[in-house]
Design a binder for these strands. Sequence first.
DNA 1: ATATTGTTGATATTAATAATCAATATTAAG
DNA 2: CTTAATATTGATTATTAATATCAACAATAT
Lengths: 143, 143
Amino acid sequence: MGKADAKDIFLSNIRKKGLRNTKQREEILEAFLSADGHITIDDLYATVKKRDPEIGYATVHRNLKLMCESGLADEIKIGNKKARYEQKYGHEHHDHLICLKCGRFIEVNDERIERLQDKLAEANDFKPMRHKMEIYGLCKKCR
Amino acid sequence: MGKADAKDIFLSNIRKKGLRNTKQREEILEAFLSADGHITIDDLYATVKKRDPEIGYATVHRNLKLMCESGLADEIKIGNKKARYEQKYGHEHHDHLICLKCGRFIEVNDERIERLQDKLAEANDFKPMRHKMEIYGLCKKCR
DNA sequence: ATATTGTTGATATTAATAATCAATATTAAG
DNA sequence: CTTAATATTGATTATTAATATCAACAATAT
């Protein structure tokens, strides 16, 4: 579950689509895998820019989308705010508690809830594929 | 839980904010309370326009937001799609199963999940205020 | 080497939402 | 009823985030 594995996955997905590898692609991937938390495209762009000031915003945008398609990144959209991205490969599924005051994202997971969600879907003749659960409120520091 | 009550709540909230009532406001509220399901601003605008072609889009937009603030309407944002609004007053809290193929929204509720969500928040020293749970997949017809 | 075709980076476009503002309507006060 | 104060409307413009466009360039296969 190291960075190397994630890179391999990305590369093989790229190839599968008939796409090519480039130094920009590698730099952006490397930067994303080194980042943690829930970052925006702007955050990643700023990081990448430090290493290579020649890289453009569009390239970061495109490649982040590509990482999502490859299963390495996950997009989180809250209202009309900018989308945030988190690592997916080697990270367990989780949901979020989101502080309305400081904006902090707390990652949580509850197996019982997960099971009940599946049952709930089943009871409605619905085939669940993914889900999103966000609890908004006040975190430890802000309550 | 009739329409009249909802209107009273809206009116009193309006007044509390030092705002005024207008015929447009009443028409838009009436149209919203008569609509059902998960409608967009455009949907509501079209309905209102039939009764009174003079009413502008901005007015519908503003007043729908005002209904949200008054607790009569709830906004549902899915990705970058247009926001949808549903009635809140006199309607139980519920979550959604969303079909990825036909776009259908199925309203669901599970008390056990609700309780576990509260416990989950509590276990993280988090004060929950509202939450969103959406399960994406394929509905009965599309699976 | 060279032809092919995907990639990049600057910029333009799209789409949803919200802000602006002059004309108008509502409300309270005299 | 009249008037002053101020909120509302509706057309338009501005803002914001996300994505598309395209000429110059780079990666790949032959």
